[in-house]
Amino acid sequence: MKNRILQLCATVAGIAVGLVAATSANAATTLETVKARGKLICGVSMSTPGFATADAKGHMGGFDVDVCRAVAAAVFGDPEKVDFVLTNINTRFQALQSGEIDMLSRQTTLTFSREVSLGLDFGPTVFYDGQGLMVPKSLGVNSAKELTDAAICTLPGTTTAQNLSDFFRSIGGKFELVVFENPDENRNAFFSGRCEAISSDRSDLASIRAVANNPDDYVVLPETISKEPLAPAVRQNDSNWRDIVSWSAWMLMAAEERGITQANVDEMAKSEDPEIQRMLGVNEELGKMLNLDNKWGYNIIKGVGNYGEVFERNLGTKTALGLTRGPNTRWSEGGLLYAPPFR
């Protein structure tokens, strides 16, 4: 009997020690973990046309997906060495915090409270978005200000519902908010007329419109009621990993500025321009300073192309979403994309 009690105590102590040990084994840096695994794990959204969707063969594509692929190309020289985890709007930050994913590239708005209180660091803004409202053309509405008393469908939480509240408070109107957990239910409620309007980021509205039976029946209203800078995020306190993600994103933008494309990157590697030489790893050792292969920049552009190519392939006017570049064009043409110098 005494032995059994001792045994029990020993088991309990063992469990306790095990629990404590399991929690403190998180010392390796993200880059080491990723390299040891041989694959990047990237959190993206669930089936959002243009940003993250699987094609008929199950191959993931989209703007957010290509940002992940750029980082995979920088680390491994191969844009395919990445696994995608579909995160929903509620679990995306937890997935990153808990280490389930290495980076989050999921139409996520950079805000003060997210960067400061969630244990995250954001990379550069890769897409300048803003919240808009879409209505059926038959409603005959030309401005969001006319939508007082209308019912508006949205997804829960995030900043969407709060921005709508703020907007209607500022114009002194009221509205009826209908919130859905599931994007499909949200779309269906809007298409079947439960709500007069649907509100989300403008890019997301374009993707909702793209799946309508007849996209021409719907119109996105001119007002942008919030700023939504969408940026990739990583866990806090890992500067090297954050640098890799940030500069991979800036590499896409800088390549467009310098006219380096997926097709001409081999040609450009012979360029005499010192910055292009540094970017493509011909000269100096920028890659080594990031603990990466020195040809990381070459690999990114060879793998996914420059920012303009990524945009046009996934979101541009020739796609179902049909977005124009708007503010997402380079600074020299009046846009907001401005990559810091590579030196």
Partner: peptide, 22 residues
């Protein structure tokens, strides 16, 4: 939550999203 009725879970989810305090 599946059909958009604001019960306790839906309100809590919204709060979780805004404060990050899951």
């Amino acid at each position: 939550i599946a059909i958009g009725y604001p019960d306790l879970v839906m309100v809590s989810n919204t709060i979780m999203n805004q404060t990050g305090q899951a």
